[in-house]
Design a protein around this nucleic acid. Structure first.
Lengths: 178, 178
DNA sequence: TTGCATCTGTATCGAACTGATATATATTGG
DNA sequence: CCAATATATATCAGTTCGATACAGATGCAA
């Protein structure tokens, strides 16, 4: 599933401009999927060419025309087709964990700082989700929201419980270096 | 931190060929970071140009020469510099979760199947980590290995506990459609 | 023993995607 | 009153993926 397909999915929820689709990615899919203008606008052009979405232009004074996209019947079929297929594996990349892989090359204080920051970052993300969760309505959205909270909390708990493994490791190495 | 930098990091653990670096990504960084030949080989060329790694060629009979890369002193400094910087945010993309976002468009049976498969996939990943964890030695590696297990287990637990929210939702929608 | 899969090793290419940047104006809040 | 944020379009260079190509070695099962 590429961004083109997911734009189609967002349009099943109602007509939107490219700008609004970007916002939807940020507001409701932040946990799950990311997309930049550099992929959204070309995607919408291609979808239009292929007849999977239609586009009406709303001329505005002293601004670029607003282009409102709607999904077509054939677009809807194609989207259902796409989500019926087995989803590809998650893609995950964490610089934080990559750095920890080389913790022995850093001073112990740096490791502690890094973990402290990670914990407060995850806590912040949970707080954001808490706020969003209230206003969200469907069980489906609550499910995804709580999914995120659960995973973030599991990470915080793990870091708190086992950080000493890294911190003592680094400490020993730096002592050995003396 | 890009793949170029992480290749440098892998070379701090010992000399290696491009092929071996790829294997290291698969064997020891699978949880954390991914890289394909299409990024590794160009990265090594660029690192060589910049004098951050050196390369000696080992000619082999009826095979392309084996190129063994070593990190240089300046490469080592540059790598430490890179990991001292604040790590960028994780990048995460999950087609599985994206599909769940549109669960209301799928039959309830499909949702159940999807979740069943996800649970066994995560269980498999935990089993793989269990096996690897034994043979790994340093506290640092154990830390990362158990990190992965913990997160995967949290996901399984969550899915088991709350899948009914999605399954009943889908059921209601399909009844409503009748 | 033959044949098939997997391993070792190099490398490139098109397509996908990111992140920054450009261009304009309106609105909101401190 | 000014700065930040929001609305709205779009492109571009650089990064990365996934597939593919080539080619012999090695292992293993029928």
């Amino acid at each position: 599933m590429d961004i083109r397909t997911l734009c189609l999915g967002i349009l099943t929820m109602g007509d939107a401009t490219g700008y609004e689709i970007k916002k939807t990615f940020e507001d409701r899919l932040d946990l799950i999927f990311h997309a930049s203008y550099g992929s959204i606008y070309p995607a919408l052009n291609k979808l239009t060419e292929e007849g999977l979405v239609s586009c009406r232009e709303l001329s505005q004074v002293k601004r670029p025309d607003k282009k409102i996209y709607s999904i077509t019947a054939s677009g809807r079929y194609q989207f259902i087709d796409a989500i019926m297929k087995r989803p590809a594996a998650d893609r995950f990349r964490s610089e934080f964990l990559a750095v920890l892989m080389f913790a022995h090359l850093l001073p112990a204080s740096k490791i502690s700082e890094l973990i402290d920051e990670r914990i407060s970052d995850r806590a912040q993300k949970i707080e954001n989700l808490d706020n969003e969760c209230d206003s969200k309505l469907t069980d489906r959205e609550k499910f995804l929201c709580n999914f995120g909270r659960t995973i973030y909390q599991a990470e915080i708990d793990y870091l708190k419980d086992y950080r000493h493994l890294l911190e003592s490791d680094a400490l020993m190495d730096s002592r050995a270096a003396d």
